[in-house]
Design a protein around this nucleic acid. Sequence first.
DNA 1: GACAATACCAAGCAAGCGCTTGGTTTGTAA
DNA 2: TTACAAACCAAGCGCTTGCTTGGTATTGTC
Lengths: 207, 207
Amino acid sequence: MSQNQILQSLIAENLVSDPTGARGRLLKEAARLFREKGYERTTVRDLAAAVGIQSGSLFHHFRTKEEILKAVMVETIRLNTALMQSAMEAADTPRDKLRALVRAELESINGQTGEAMAVLVFEWRSLSADSQAEVLELRDIYEALWLDVLGLLREQGALLAEPFVVRRMLTGALSWTVTWYRPERGGLTLDGLTDQVMAMLGFAATA
Amino acid sequence: MSQNQILQSLIAENLVSDPTGARGRLLKEAARLFREKGYERTTVRDLAAAVGIQSGSLFHHFRTKEEILKAVMVETIRLNTALMQSAMEAADTPRDKLRALVRAELESINGQTGEAMAVLVFEWRSLSADSQAEVLELRDIYEALWLDVLGLLREQGALLAEPFVVRRMLTGALSWTVTWYRPERGGLTLDGLTDQVMAMLGFAATA
DNA sequence: GACAATACCAAGCAAGCGCTTGGTTTGTAA
DNA sequence: TTACAAACCAAGCGCTTGCTTGGTATTGTC
């Protein structure tokens, strides 16, 4: 299934908003602004202006500002969980599955959903405790994908460190790319970057 | 030189504030609050209350709230650069130097200066562009320490990936530990965590 | 073409924000 | 004891914030 097909089916199931609709457009702009200026520094007036309405009109679509932040996070996780699952299923060996996961996460961080992913990392504390708990549940689903694959590699002896530690290190390392990786300037492509990550873990690049 | 000796000499040179003095205590509380609630959500009234003065009195010590954030970051970098330099010089082989750097960075992130280090990572955007430039200059000094060591290992063939990529991945991975590593509960010590990081990079633990 | 429901606007409220002001206390040294 | 600066307080100003309110277009449905 292509990336776009996955997105379409999630929209059909009402799990993520159509980016061409009013709600979807707002969430996209919100992700951009939250990443650019941070959640706190982004005012409801900024958000409204970004989609061309009055600030008060926002509250017809969302009850609070925080609900917007939460929606950005929830929808991002839903989309990326689906993308990862699909990427992983397409690979055969544990090693290739790991590469697929790394590649997929790098893509979600540095591609279309990059702004929303950065928000997920950097604006976590701005969520209320209740919302944090809800979002965490969703995250667990796709963390399990990683741990399964890393566990297999560990059994094979291809990994010297503990799977749960490696996953957490990779979470940090891959998220952090958002602060420095610029594919447009400089020769490192997404596949090249994926190779570098695999090499760092001791897996030589495939031909 | 012990950690404490390094701190004392920096205080003597007026490069960091004495943590027992008024300014030092404020910076320590500021780091705690900034990390706990974020810079924007921390009010000058919070900061003042934390050291037992009125909010207006803060501005006798600092001209603006942002100046407090900047001071937290600057002093943290100064201290940690000194600590890293010292840790690295004590090691002999490139491999041991790398381990010393990893261990030192994990300690600064998860030890005494942990709150300030977390602020450095998560509140970066709250600094004005001018302040960012100033702080970046300081960072470059200790980034060079890492790149030197990683470059040596690369030449030796002990590292499969590019030094600058590895350093950036490690920055993310090690910073991220602040969100999950809890030495007090759970058996993983700081040395154990350091071993795990080295193992992830393909370096087996020494006896 | 009537009628809801949905989407929006214009205006502004109450609270909280960073910071300023004018004046008082405290520490230090001659 | 006096002199003076550093450290602090009490009060509050001007502004921005998230959000509410009462009303008006716009849209889809039969």
